[in-house]
């Protein structure tokens, strides 16, 4: 029974870590399937996290915070779009640049506006955060046998953004594989010339994809600062954008496998926290750092073709020019 409780708690922690990863990975999925490398995930998330916390702290409404987070992330996405789509700039450089800019900008604005050393004020008022929604009879179910705990800890008690992220996966899969827009999006990432020949604007499609990526990064960042914690702190994404990118690659640029990768990476994270200093049978104490590095190692192995094969969209990273 105790092991069972432990496992359920571990899974609950996995869901908490996986949510922002999944939102960011889905964001990257749209951008990258359209042929635009999304190294700006980290920056867009961080920018949204700051904007959401700042607006929620000043207005007292987390919904306005979410709106601000989305607007900020979309604005940053449009900077990348303007540089890479309109002016055919280097996509990797653009993403890096936006990320670095935001890493500096968040604490700079934070210090000037709130005078708390670059943080935003604690979000402790009513309605300033996304908090867990307790489902009916969750407390009664907790006392009930096995599935009860699962119901109480996993299904119930999550905040809205978690459910949104979960719903996003089938929705994205539907868009990509069952709609005309999705077909075009996939096509523009594989063979933009064919799309252009069919009379569809390559740039317009890519802009749409980049904007969608911004919107989803807005959700991811808002989750970090108003749901997972109560306020913005410096560098709070801590590489989650890059981890999401790794998950996207590990998921072979497909919605459902990406969900799997996000859950796997989040699980290793949750496990690392649990296993801190715990001696396991046979191997003894596993250094936390090794477990934390596991997602990156796995992604490199996958990219190297040692575990399966990840084939990127063909036109990814190549600026589109009608002439070539």
């Amino acid at each position: 029974m105790e092991t069972y409780t432990l496992i359920v708690l571990l899974l609950a922690a996995t869901i908490r870590v996986a949510t922002p990863l999944l939102l960011a990975a889905m964001a990257g999925l749209f951008s990258e399937r359209s042929g635009v490398i999304d190294l700006g995930l980290e920056g867009k998330m961080l920018g949204a996290a700051f904007a959401a916390a700042a607006v929620s702290a000043t207005t007292g409404s987390v919904w306005l915070g979410l709106g601000a987070g989305i607007l900020t992330a979309v604005a940053l996405a449009l900077v990348i779009g303007y540089a890479c789509i309109t002016h055919r700039g280097n996509q990797v450089v653009a993403g890096m640049a936006v990320t670095i800019m935001v890493v500096g900008l968040g604490p700079t604005l934070g210090l000037a506006w709130f005078n708390l050393g670059g943080q935003t004020p604690q979000l402790d008022g009513v309605g300033q955060r996304f908090t867990g929604i307790v489902w009916p009879w969750a407390e009664t179910a907790r006392e009930a046998p096995l599935p009860g705990l699962l119901y109480a800890e996993l299904l119930s008690g999550q905040n809205l953004l978690v459910y949104f992220a979960a719903a996003l996966v089938p929705f994205s899969a539907w868009i990509f594989y069952r709609t005309r827009f999705g077909l075009r999006l996939r096509a523009v990432g594989e063979n933009p010339h064919a799309v252009d020949t069919a009379g569809i604007s390559v740039n317009a499609l890519r802009y749409q994809a980049v904007i969608i990526s911004g919107v989803l990064c807005g959700f991811a960042g808002t989750y970090l600062s108003t749901a997972a914690s109560s306020g913005f702190v410096r560098d709070m994404t801590a590489g989650k954008g890059y981890l999401a990118l790794a998950a996207l690659i590990f998921g072979k640029w497909k919605p459902w496998p990406t969900l799997g990768a996000c859950l796997l990476f989040a699980f290793t994270d949750a496990l690392a926290t649990r296993l801190q200093g715990v001696a396991l049978p046979v191997v003894g104490v596993v250094p936390v750092q090794f477990i934390l590095a596991l997602p990156y190692v796995l992604t490199v192995l996958l990219l190297a073709g040692f575990v399966g094969q990840a084939v990127a969209p063909k036109a990814i990273g190549v600026p589109y020019s009608k002439e070539k």
């Binding site: 002016h87 700039g89 280097n90 996509q91 450089v93 653009a94 890096m96 640049a97 936006v98 670095i100």
Partner: peptide
């Protein structure tokens, strides 16, 4: 980086 690299 943005101006020299991506927006040159």
């Amino acid at each position: 980086i943005l101006l020299c690299g991506a927006m040159e």
